[in-house]
Design a binder for these strands. Sequence first.
DNA 1: CCGCTATACTTGAGTACGCAACCAATATAG
DNA 2: CTATATTGGTTGCGTACTCAAGTATAGCGG
Lengths: 130, 130
Amino acid sequence: MSAQLVAEHGLTINDYEALLHLARAEDGRMRRVDLAERLILTASGVTRLLDGLEAAGLVERASCASDRRVTYAVLTAAGRTKLHEASESHMADIRAYFEGRFSSEELKQLAALLGRLPGAADAAGEDCAA
Amino acid sequence: MSAQLVAEHGLTINDYEALLHLARAEDGRMRRVDLAERLILTASGVTRLLDGLEAAGLVERASCASDRRVTYAVLTAAGRTKLHEASESHMADIRAYFEGRFSSEELKQLAALLGRLPGAADAAGEDCAA
DNA sequence: CCGCTATACTTGAGTACGCAACCAATATAG
DNA sequence: CTATATTGGTTGCGTACTCAAGTATAGCGG
């Protein structure tokens, strides 16, 4: 399933998740640290992940006026488009996977239970929210 | 949690899982292919994982009489001991994690639902089964 | 019996990380 | 206002994988 993302859209799951978090964030931008926390990655992991997304033109850097240490990652128009494309097939894959194995009642239970795990501040069901 | 395993016992989660599957298998041995399937790794991943475990003396190679292509991975006594040690703290960690977040009723639901996912042929709850 | 495909495994190259060490800018303490 | 700690970020090195290619054995169909 994550292989689908790579094959069809050239995105790692973490690439995808990064774009997704950015799309949901205010102004489509986040500090690298915060992104790291969301993705459960180290700072260095985020640096290199964003290196790739920047090279692909899907995100840009922006500096912060009030704190010169931080550099924001900002979603570009191309990034937003890419996310939408990828989201379409990826969400369908996920949906098919779970709906093929669980009833909608069971899915509700699972969502309720697993939603309480740390790092689950999200994803009510609809797509990329942007 | 997987960091605990590495820090306290020098085992990757996959190292641990490999020992666990071997311990549960007949005669403590498995073909590398079958181990790969269980661990959701490629053949080459297993080769290198076992390289490490062999170097540590936790598993050994054995050849198959009826098919000279296959090499078995066999759990050594040291491997079994190591598994028991690691199992103790690892199971406790897992238990603490889930019991801290879910009631026993909820845990039963989760086990029933998630147990239906592919690759869940296992782990009724007790430790390393050996 | 001979080629052909499939299976079990290994090896070389590349990728996605983590960790530790580092620099720069900001907060806090004295 | 300096001195120290804290926070945001990048970089070098090591590790755990994957994929593609290669070797060896096994099991065909003709």
